[in-house]
């Protein structure tokens, strides 16, 4: 299950999307998500789908990877769908037992599912094509203005990148401690929820001890290498926009413009034909 989550995983390839500045991809994802929720209508979704498919094609990430990301949230999607389907008021369409499905409900459910699917695929596309380090760099640089009002942007970015580095190590460690306790007869599976929670103590205590020890060691190692916060630091890989990034911004702008235009056309047409 955990392995199915593609958000946060990186798919190494050398495509134009991979080479884009992370700031472009961050802003692009943001614009895309907003566009999904602000705009309605069939045409808007077709455009959003075209945009997504094109981006995936250019990124050279296999389509199956995107779908894998959806698997992890399939439960969430089903629940959202059902809520919309049954709890929306409106003109009844079909009804059985105590449930009534309305036209509006069916429409809402369909819309919501499409939105969620696009949202997950769009976000996975960003994380699949951007290394965690680029991502934190991009965030740090994009949010830099906030540091003027006292937000510790550099520190947050540093914490994020360290967390990303240590997640695989801690997962491995969890596995090791679990096995060691199982060798001492620990049982992590049977019993009710309270027994299970209690059974976690022999796993969690050593894990926390180890995480603190690692944090301590790491802080010392960083200090030993002259780390002294964000001031006076230079960058090995500074972010700077290239031609492709300006082109990407232009494409994003065009997408947004097209969405807005569609919206007006749609309203006009609906009014005209009385939809």
């Amino acid at each position: 299950m955990i392995r199915d989550i593609t958000i946060g995983q990186y798919y190494p390839a050398n495509s134009p999307v991979h080479r884009l500045d992370p700031r472009v991809k961050l802003l692009g994802t943001l614009i895309y998500i907003i566009s999904l929720f602000v705009f309605k209508g069939f045409a808007a979704f077709v455009l959003a789908a075209i945009f997504l498919v094109a981006a995936i094609k250019i990124s050279r990430v296999p389509f199956s990877y995107m779908v894998k990301g959806l698997k992890a949230i399939v439960v969430l999607m089903v629940i959202t769908g059902l809520f919309n389907l049954f709890l929306t008021q409106g003109t009844p369409w079909v009804s059985f037992w105590v449930f009534t499905v309305t036209y509006e409900g069916a429409e809402n459910a369909a819309l919501m599912l499409i939105r969620l699917a696009f949202l997950i695929i769009g976000t996975s596309l960003m994380t699949l094509t951007t290394t965690p380090n680029q991502l934190t760099d991009g965030l740090e640089k994009s949010l830099h203005p906030l540091s003027k009002i006292g937000v510790p942007v550099h520190e947050i970015a540093m914490m994020m990148s360290i967390a990303l580095r240590f997640i695989p190590i801690l997962i491995e460690e969890t596995d090791k401690i679990m096995k060691a306790q199982m060798a001492r007869g620990a049982d992590f599976e049977s019993g009710n929820i309270f027994r299970k929670a209690k059974a976690m103590i022999p796993l969690l205590v050593p894990l926390f001890v180890s995480a603190f020890r690692r944090a301590n060691d790491l802080a010392m190692a960083m200090e030993a290498r002259c780390y002294n916060g964000g001031t006076g630091r230079t960058k090995m890989k500074p972010l700077c926009y290239k031609r492709q990034d300006y082109i990407a911004y232009a494409v994003l702008f065009l997408y947004l413009a097209a969405m807005i235009a569609l919206r007006f056309v749609w309203t006009y047409l609906s009014a005209l034909f009385g939809w």
Binding site: K176, K179, A180, P202, P206, S210
Partner: peptide
């Protein structure tokens, strides 16, 4: 069959 893992002190709790 008792198994003592590497660095077994990491399992103390």
């Amino acid at each position: 069959v008792g198994l003592v893992f590497q660095y077994p002190e990491h399992q103390l709790f």
